[in-house]
């Protein structure tokens, strides 16, 4: 199991790195799916099979499909990749990388200096426990989450309309 964990971890890291460095959105998206699948495997290894399934269905499935649809709708031309290479000069990477590295080191420091695991061998948490907690202790949060989704739908519908009332500002901006 430990081996599986490290394997999937490596896959996840690599795939994510490929997402960040890829030149074409569709390629990036495919790497992202790989990354999500790897993380889902990690979940499974960590004893959260229900979450692993949700990761696959919602992240790798639904959300990625949304991205794909959007890329298709935007119908980006062939010059996207060259534009990206132009954006991603090596010098651009230096500052952000350093910043992220410092943050990463700090986070590792937090993790390592934290107290050791209370239960060295954590047991698997089955979906039933999760469901009981979700509908029991967190039912109000579930309500809020549903409202958030509703708001998301309304906002997406409104923003996705072909022409908004103040579309005339387009000329003013350009």
């Amino acid at each position: 199991m430990t081996f599986a964990f490290y394997l999937f971890s490596c896959i996840a890291i690599l795939a994510t790195a490929m997402v960040v460095t890829s030149r074409h959105p569709v390629h990036g998206l495919l790497y992202l799916v790989v990354s999500f699948l790897a993380v889902a495997s990690v979940f499974y290894v960590l004893g959260a099979p229900f979450i692993a399934l949700l990761e696959v269905i919602v992240y790798a499935g639904a959300i990625m499909v949304l991205f794909v649809f959007m890329i298709m709708m935007l119908n980006l031309g062939p010059n996207v990749a060259s534009e990206e290479s132009q954006f991603l000069r090596p010098s651009v990477w230096v500052g952000p990388s350093l910043l992220c590295l410092v943050l990463f080191v700090e986070m590792i420091y937090v993790v390592v200096s934290g107290e050791p695991s209370a239960t060295a061998a954590a047991s698997e948490i089955d979906p039933k426990q999760v469901g009981v907690a979700l509908i029991g202790k967190y039912y109000l949060a579930v309500e809020f989450a549903s409202m958030l989704l509703l708001a998301g739908i309304v906002a997406a519908y409104h923003l996705g309309k072909r022409s908004l009332p103040d579309e005339t500002t387009e000329e003013a901006i350009q």
Binding site: T16, G47, L103, F104, I108, V111, S117, A122
Partner: peptide, 18 residues
């Protein structure tokens, strides 16, 4: 059950986040 690599999971999360 085997020992779960808990710290490893957190490190992975930090790495993905970074």
């Amino acid at each position: 059950m085997t020992v779960l690599p808990v710290n490893g999971g957190l490190v992975l999360a930090a790495g993905l986040f970074a």
